[in-house]
Amino acid sequence: MIVLENVSKVFETKKGRVEAVKDVNLHVKKGEIHGVIGYSGAGKSTLIRCVNLLEKPTTGKVFINGEEITSLNSGKLAEKRKHIGMIFQGFNLLKTATVYDNIAIPLKLIGLNKTEVENRVKKYLDIVGLSEKVNSYPSQLSGGQKQRVAIARALSQEPEILLSDEATSALDPETTDSILDLLLKINIELGITILLITHEMNVIQKICDYVYVMENGDIVEQGSAIDLFTKPERETTKKFLNTIAQRKLSPSLINQLQGTGSVLRLTFVGESTGQPLLAAVSKQFDVSPNILTANIIELKNGIVGNIVIHLEGDQKHIRDSLQFLKEKGVGVEELEG
């Protein structure tokens, strides 16, 4: 559905050459939700704007539904963009226009007749749950309602792809959850493929099938959401996980506990989440697990459990117990101070 091949974007500034995106390869399958996460300045916004050529790549190719759009002329590109909707952090609503007109005006500009415009406005306001706000103005809406209007406007052109540029970062946590629920509904019920960028790990957690971690213009790690939550490799990925997973312990505490055993992070996924494996370890190997932190993360396509323990006992018994846990499908990581 969306393929980026060796895409780079370079800006020439007064201070010199800036490589915002560096040789990125990305493949979003039809009907999936993919997320790009990174800190401010990582190149996320530039990358997503390369997908619909709001920013034309310096090098590389962009394919939509198998067609290379980087080689299209302006007329054909404009036609292709009709199938790509986009929502932004800032909503971009006309302040002096009603909710109805904010959705209707773009439809009129592409030549739809009055009846079709009315039908689409009604249909997509109903989908986003704002039918009763049709005659309201943006100043009369909450932040979440404004974003719903922006989503309805993007959907009204009936795209196959929806791009989301930090669409929830200006919203409070409860409103963010409601918008993410809406995006999931859109993906499932309308079959729309979604590519989003974010710096919020809870966004990735809730709706993404596949994740790209971006740093200094590069994709430094990628994989299914479950893979990244259970087996993060890069330090940037681990830092993002620490924001939601209660994974981080102070080095001083780890050093203190290491004198009487090992400090371990255990990651449970799939069937292992429902088994009393720590109780089994305690009975079989004469070790004493002390739970320091624990949580369960519900992802779009599975559940991941994280437990940080202090495991006391003879070193041989500890090694045997860790081997037992690994054989049961538990991820084991020894933490250092």
Rank of each mutant, 00 (worst) to 15 (best):
T243N: 07
A245R: 05
N242T: 08
F240Q: 05
F240I: 12
R234K: 15
E221G: 01
T237S: 04
K231G: 03
F229W: 02
G223T: 07
T237W: 00
Q222C: 13
E221F: 01
T243C: 08
R234Y: 05
F229P: 02
Q222A: 12
T230S: 15
I219Y: 00
K238D: 08
F229K: 00
E233N: 14
E235Y: 08
L228I: 09
P232E: 04
K231L: 14
D227E: 15
L241R: 07
E235T: 06
Q222M: 13
D218A: 11
E221C: 00
V220H: 01
I226G: 05
K238Y: 08
F240M: 12
G217N: 11
I219V: 12
G223L: 05
A245W: 04
T230W: 05
T236M: 12
T236A: 12
T243H: 05
Q222F: 12
K238A: 05
G223K: 02
G223M: 06
R234D: 11
I219S: 01
K238F: 07
A225F: 00
T237H: 01
N242K: 13
P232N: 04
A245K: 06
S224Q: 10
S224T: 15
Q246G: 12
I244W: 09
E221W: 00
T237R: 02
T230Y: 04
T243S: 15
T230D: 08
T236L: 14
Q222G: 06
I244C: 10
D218M: 11
K239P: 02
L241G: 09
A245H: 04
Q246D: 15
T230P: 10
Q246M: 12
T236C: 04
E221S: 03
D227C: 12
A245G: 15
A245M: 11
D227R: 14
G223Q: 03
Q222N: 13
S224F: 13
K231D: 14
K239E: 15
F240L: 07
L241F: 09
T237M: 01
I244Y: 11
E235P: 05
Q246N: 14
S224G: 15
K238E: 09
D227Y: 14
P232S: 08
T230E: 06
G217R: 12
F240E: 02
Q222R: 13
S224W: 14
E221M: 08
Q246P: 06
K239G: 07
